[in-house]
Design a protein around this nucleic acid. Sequence first.
DNA 1: CCTCTTGCCGAAACCGGTTTCGGTGCGAAC
DNA 2: GTTCGCACCGAAACCGGTTTCGGCAAGAGG
Lengths: 382, 382
Amino acid sequence: MLTDAPPNGARSGQPAAGARRATITNVAEALGVSKGTVSRALNGYPDISDRTRQRVRQAAERMGYLPSAQAKAIRTGRVGAIGLVLQVGEPDAQRPFLADFLAGLTTAASAENCSLTIATAQDDSETRAALSRLIAERKADGFILPRTRLVDPRIDLLRAAGVPFVLFGRTGDPTGCAWFDLLGEDAMDEAVRRLHALGHRRIGYLGGGVGLAYNALRLAGYRRALASLGLPQAPALETHGGTTMETGAAGAARLMAQPDPPTALVCATDMGALGAHRWACEAGLTIGRDLSLIGYDGVPEGEWVAPPLTTFEVDNRAAGARLAALLLRRIRGEPAEALRETARARLCPRGSDGPPALDPTALARRLEFTAQGHHDTKGGRP
Amino acid sequence: MLTDAPPNGARSGQPAAGARRATITNVAEALGVSKGTVSRALNGYPDISDRTRQRVRQAAERMGYLPSAQAKAIRTGRVGAIGLVLQVGEPDAQRPFLADFLAGLTTAASAENCSLTIATAQDDSETRAALSRLIAERKADGFILPRTRLVDPRIDLLRAAGVPFVLFGRTGDPTGCAWFDLLGEDAMDEAVRRLHALGHRRIGYLGGGVGLAYNALRLAGYRRALASLGLPQAPALETHGGTTMETGAAGAARLMAQPDPPTALVCATDMGALGAHRWACEAGLTIGRDLSLIGYDGVPEGEWVAPPLTTFEVDNRAAGARLAALLLRRIRGEPAEALRETARARLCPRGSDGPPALDPTALARRLEFTAQGHHDTKGGRP
DNA sequence: CCTCTTGCCGAAACCGGTTTCGGTGCGAAC
DNA sequence: GTTCGCACCGAAACCGGTTTCGGCAAGAGG
């Protein structure tokens, strides 16, 4: 059996078989110097002679000594960990991104001797509770806040607690906030221009999570492009909440059920776009001809549908790395205003967009026709 | 600007605006008792009167006091965290599972006042380095080891260090190991029986990661079912390494390039099965008729292909929860041998399996025919 | 009335680090 | 030959908890 957690260890002075890690006292005794000297030597204080520093370094190396993060934290106030509370159970949780995102966070953090502490929560109140607890137990020196809202109670909580944080996304009141974000508005702008160049003149917006900051920004980018191109803009061309296949399909159905429906949809999320994709297939539309779709996120499922989804790819690993770097600087005291970065998502052209085969009126007639029962669904053609 | 990390705080006795968390000394002073009394009262020691215990509890609650995990750790040796090193960058990394898995881990852990510390690594040596560092810095009381190998250096490392751990999966030398695992061998067995009941008599195995424990177990389950049903078993019916679409396609191609190819493939992983799926489509086979496929994992992509993939669904959230619970008990000193659990994956029948339309010989002729150029690929039928 | 428990709690050691303060030895300057 | 400054390091306080030890008071028993 494994040596069961030796609580008080062998009473002997020599740890011997206990496999106990070396402490700073062990190193100090081995060298015949004081604890303080070892600490200062290893932490680069100037009032230690080079010879002593060398000896201490070598002894520490030889004994496999690494300072305990907890013991260090109790004095310095820094745990050497960044915190992240994931809200799972939400429809558009960050499924495929997560591994890459975490990899980015941890590699950047561990480059500065920091680890990552994570917690999960089902809803908003659990998230706040988890944050409070991590703060109270001092398990993290600062936090990454993903999926920012326009008004975000997490931000108020951290501001009030005086704990450093960095947003993944922007927010309504940016006072004292550092952030990293992708320019979703530019992506939506680019999507509209691309569709316009293909010949589309009536372009709809299938929005994402209501209240989430990204959705407001992407909507703004969509509208900006419409305005600059002189294309029509109308409430009937916009819908929101399309973050899953179900809601995406429902949103697409709503947008397309009008006399002059859009011939193309710019979608704030890939999952919403995939819902629209499925709806359009079932409505008998040929995607990329009758209806064009452009998504955003770069989820792997987008490659699986036919035709594959044109979308904007996000480098989540790089995002995680930048966020960790910013947070570490924030923890060291740099002002939040100096820690704001953005990046661009990369257009990934695939098959779901193309020149419109029909004008809006013809498209509406076509939809009405199939809706009246002339449907070719998965029954095979008789 | 936010109050920048007040290192030594205001010199005043009253923390006031510093927003500093209350310490045990604060609570003790507020009540006029000693630190020790507060500690004992909150930790349920028996030699504290009920009245005092109540007063301390209320004061702690009122002052928002929660003991610092680090300060506690320094004395008790327990950090109150479980560790997990994720190996990203591998082809069959746990992409879709991860969020659910983490949710299971953290909810089960936080129920016992534990958090989760994670690190990532690219390869084996980085993984070992990350483990060593987390141990040396005492950032975790124990570890979850996912994706176990038949011979796994991580296990040796943790055994030598005397650190508790629980495997997600089994391993070659189980001495001193606790684990949770899914009975992949039973799933493969069930898959073979299902195909046999459908009429298949020549069934192949598209194996997963070489050297990984699950692959050996699933192969054993496949062979066991063949033997018990009296079906032919041959090296030519087995291949390994199919953990991605590419390798899965290659494996399927190899298995099917023989005079009497299998009419059905039992696949150790969904990604391998999806590779076989794509290969079969491109080879002009009708999946579910010419060739049947059964996967394992329950990745979401399986629902996206046509026909959707019959597979075994794994409840990764529950797995995470069980693993965390086992690890916590292990940390408390329960013997590893008493902490071994298994669960079953649930068959999820979809469309990729059915009665065979051809016998092996006819199937081989069919494949040869299309290989000679009579191919109908995505060019449309001329 | 004295002793012996028993219940309850304070004092202080302790965990493993960091940091302040003060003191030594040495060479240089006066 | 003092005095001063400087480089270097030891002693000890400190961080925020836990745990051991011992003491006091009250009650029980003789």
